[in-house]
Design a protein around this nucleic acid. Structure first.
Lengths: 340, 340
DNA sequence: TCTGGCACTCGACTGTAGCGAGTGCCAGTC
DNA sequence: GACTGGCACTCGCTACAGTCGAGTGCCAGA
């Protein structure tokens, strides 16, 4: 069922106008604002076809047309031209990210930047532990039977855990423990540690074995098995933009979804390659977000992906602009990470 | 112009009913639901006085009465009886907090717990660095001119920073550097470090002095001077409870305020003793929160305070219940911290 | 000092009418 | 055959008038 070029142009015009004005767009307004070269009546005929095909719909009989999720999808896939960032935006990104002092800072700045540039809700996942390598393990004694395990990853993430030892341990023993653990584990992907950890225990001298066992358990349980992911969120206030018209009148479900880490991870964490992904309305698997769209991408130093980031807003969003921004920010952050 | 006991009882009844129903309360409903022992007409007279004194007001002529900020204040100060937590709530608190594996986990669990129990927005400040003591400093070389500084505080907080050395440093030198820094700084309050740091530089052997100087700069600048506070937030979805009637119709300003760390710190971070504080509506210094109330308190192991936590909701909130919950959660968290 | 009664106010709701944006369809034109 | 102008029709929105009822303030009387 072919849509000819003009019908596509009409759809594009409808999407653009609706995104800009947030009001159903009628045939007259359309020919006035766009150079379609035909009369309103013709446009009406085209609209009838587009509606039949499910790309647009009428809120009520005597109203203009509004794009459907399917319409946005077609728009994103075939009709939108990439909107290059303005130099001012590029500079803003660079300046904003340049001052970061550590990973926390990078993530926080990034998420605020994204929220500010897109005027939507932004989510940034910290570099995933599963995709990180161990750079260093540190053991800090607190008492003779307790120590703090600090793991520093090559992605800049630092995690600490309290370890309750089965028996008191002398300072020298702690040093041995640390040396052994570091020898075996530094440079290893966290997701690859499980088999190595067993070897680590087996090769420990007998007097260290109980301590090494508990240490390994903590390491595996808290850092690998329940994969400890962290997130930063910003821009929730932007949800109130568009005054309750978006999100079919209630922010409730959206705010609820945003509180669930699991949900957010699902949204932006499922990244294999650095391909940018757009999920529009119904395409979202989370029920609470059927009225929202998500633009997400992976990021990382060079070609490797260490985490995801993205933006969430009403289905009626500026897709070309948002896509361009998300892509650009992800690239800058990647470069920043590569430097460290 | 003393308010006699009955007038106070009327005020209490108005506050309780309004909080429960969220609708202006009239004189008839009042005598029906509370044993005041007088007729509606008498109550009306009392109401007139209460209104004159600024404790209640009428949204419009011909409507019931609603408490003013001043009315809530009087209620909180003199009229509310402490509402003891139910055993189920106590158990929920204990169970919820018991499973925490590290400081991050404690804070996250606490904030979710608070939000859930009070059905409002909860904020928890991480133990403040300024109030923490150094437990250990670790230096992890990344290259010959770069190392990661990790500071572990006695409150469980762990901070890391990248240090760019002015000149390459050998592994042995790094070890010396770490030893020196730890000797001088372990056990010291972060807020007390500045004078010690100068001594630390002066006493370093010449070949370590440049490195020690940059190290100290990083330490001071990022950890002490711009006091690095962290926060956790939960329950924003609860703002939509009460369907836009609270917060005079717009969540916008509230959500905006909640995004500003500085604002939140001001709300819950200004704690000297562990006294619980209630700020009602206009008493808040932040303009965006004139329609909100905040219940906050300090927490920490034993009698020392290391940070603040609190809850934010509509002025029309269940003060006795919220106060009891915040107090109880803060105490449990304090006990938990004392154990570690 | 309290109470019952009464007149009054005013927001909420309902029904009606007019307006206007927008459509679908049809006959006519290039 | 594709496009266009014209026209009747739909229907949401707004304004307006009328009614209802909750709640008040006040006053005379117990």
């Amino acid at each position: 069922m072919g849509l000819d070029d003009r019908k596509l142009a009409v759809l594009r015009a409808i999407v653009e106008d609706y995104v800009a004005t947030q009001e159903p767009v009628g045939s007259r307004a359309l020919v006035e604002r766009h150079q379609l070269g035909v009369s309103p009546a013709t446009v009406r005929n085209d609209m009838a076809v587009l509606e039949e095909e499910g790309y647009i719909r009428q809120p009520h009989t005597s109203a203009g047309r509004v794009p459907t999720d399917r319409g946005y999808r077609l728009f994103v896939d075939r009709l939108s031209r990439v909107k290059p960032l303005s130099p001012a935006e590029r500079r803003a990104i660079e300046r904003f990210l340049a001052g970061a002092v550590d990973l926390d800072d990078v993530v926080h700045r990034t998420v605020r930047l994204l929220a500010q540039l897109t005027r939507q809700v932004a989510v940034v996942q910290y570099p995933s532990l599963a995709r990180s390598r161990v750079r260093h393990l540190e053991l800090v004694p607190i008492s003779t039977t307790r120590l703090t395990l600090v793991m520093i990853a090559d992605t800049g993430r630092v995690e600490q855990r309290l370890v309750e030892l089965p028996a008191p341990l002398l300072a020298d023993a702690v040093i041995d423990l640390r040396r052994l653990a570091n020898e075996k584990l530094v440079g290893v992907r966290l997701s690859d540690t499980p088999p190595l950890v067993q070897a680590l225990i087996d090769e420990s001298p007998p007097h260290l074995r109980p301590a090494m066992t508990t240490l390994s358990t903590v390491l595996l349980e808290t850092l690998v098995e329940r994969h400890e992911e962290r997130l930063a969120l910003a821009g929730t206030a932007n949800l109130t933009r568009g005054g309750l018209l978006d999100f079919q009148g209630s922010l409730r479900p959206v705010l609820e979804a945003l509180e669930e880490e699991v949900v957010l991870l699902k949204l932006i964490g499922e990244v294999e390659a650095s391909t940018l992904r757009v999920r529009i309305g119904d395409e979202n698997e989370i029920d609470n977000l059927r009225a929202a769209s998500v633009v997400s991408t992976g990021y990382g130093p060079g070609a490797t992906i260490v985490g995801g980031m993205g933006v969430l807003g009403p289905t009626r969003m500026d897709y070309p602009g948002t896509i361009a921004t998300v892509r650009a920010v992800a690239r800058y952050v990647g470069e920043l990470l590569a430097q460290n």
